[in-house]
Design a protein around this nucleic acid. Structure first.
Lengths: 182, 182
DNA sequence: TGATGCTATGCAACGAGTTGCATAGCAAGC
DNA sequence: GCTTGCTATGCAACTCGTTGCATAGCATCA
């Protein structure tokens, strides 16, 4: 019961807003995917398992002009499963930071390799500038209601993303400085 | 060739210092594991694969009073494999932040559940205070040589860890404040 | 008209990561 | 004397995550 947390991320997303597997996959690209990534295959597979286990209910919705979809909502049993999990201890994170491995690896490459790494870090940095911008735009647009508990919780998680991106950008500047005058 | 980055983390670790599977596993608990986690089973399995592929060489070392060990070192082919990988683009990270899921999930739990989550966040925070302390001790102790390129690169990665932990502690205070006056 | 892309779901195969267990001798403390 | 813990390596079974592919109709743009 320690792993398989995707179920719980899906439960949270469906409680915030019921929807189809496809819609969930899109949310995992935007909102919820900021802190829990998943592909559409994973989501469809896990949704079936959750349906079998009685955590979610599917309703077939026929649409004209596009394929039918299965809209999922969370059952009472699913909600109980979620609250049970919420009360378990948080597992330590499994950190996997590829860039950090590459930076330490740069000690065993030549000048040409380090030059390429600097360019790659700059590209990586630009990506995260864009990410931070998206977060800031989303913050200004999506969190007007400071009284709704759900919104306040979503907002504090987003502030975590913003803090992370800012920290990362500062650190990348430190990395670039270190690589340049190695 | 996109995944399987454990090989490369092992190559970096073995280039920094040759050693046995067991020694590598211990390093993955301390130094390199700050940004790339792995269990001993993973490490042994991958080392065999790398030996078959000619990336590392094993030397049997008989020890008295304890089991023999196989000391690994990186071959020229292994080093080439590493530099080849260093020049590939950095893959976007697969973020999996369980605590963030739980925080958003707290909107669907009751007051008792939220109280428990607050206690759990406090425990989690204490763990990370301890982690930050270990990093700061390691920084003062292990990085005296500011001219060695390898040390400077290890140091900048450690500074990333320190920056991350500080950011996290600040954010956890924000989270606790939000949960408390929900 | 043809190419590209979006909605919508899914299978099959593979690779990566986790968990439990096993062996085996030595050292240290109760 | 007994238990616990450390060094040292490994198997087997399992779950999780990734990649490539497939279907199928409609919309949009060149």
């Amino acid at each position: 019961m320690t792993g398989m947390a995707l179920e719980h991320a899906i439960l949270v997303s469906l409680l915030e807003q019921p929807g189809s597997g496809y819609e969930l996959a899109r949310r995992f690209e935007r909102s919820i995917g900021r802190f829990w990534t998943a592909t559409h295959q994973q989501i469809y597979r896990v949704l079936k398992r959750m349906e079998t286990g009685g955590w979610v209910l599917a309703e077939e919705i026929g649409q004209d002009g596009r394929p039918d979809k299965r809209a999922y909502s969370v059952t009472a049993a699913g909600r109980d499963a979620l609250t049970g999990w919420l009360r378990e201890p948080v597992q330590p994170e499994a950190v996997r930071h590829e860039l950090a491995v590459k930076i330490r690896g740069a000690a065993f490459d030549d000048d040409a390799g380090r030059k390429r790494l600097i360019a790659e870090v700059e590209r990586y940095r630009a990506d995260h500038v864009a990410t931070l911008d998206r977060y800031l735009i989303s913050e200004n647009r999506d969190f007007p209601d400071r009284t709704d508990p759900g919104q306040r919780l979503q907002h504090v998680v987003l502030r975590g993303g913003i803090a992370y991106e800012r920290m990362l950008l500062d650190w990348l500047d430190d990395v670039l400085g270190t690589l340049r005058d190695l």
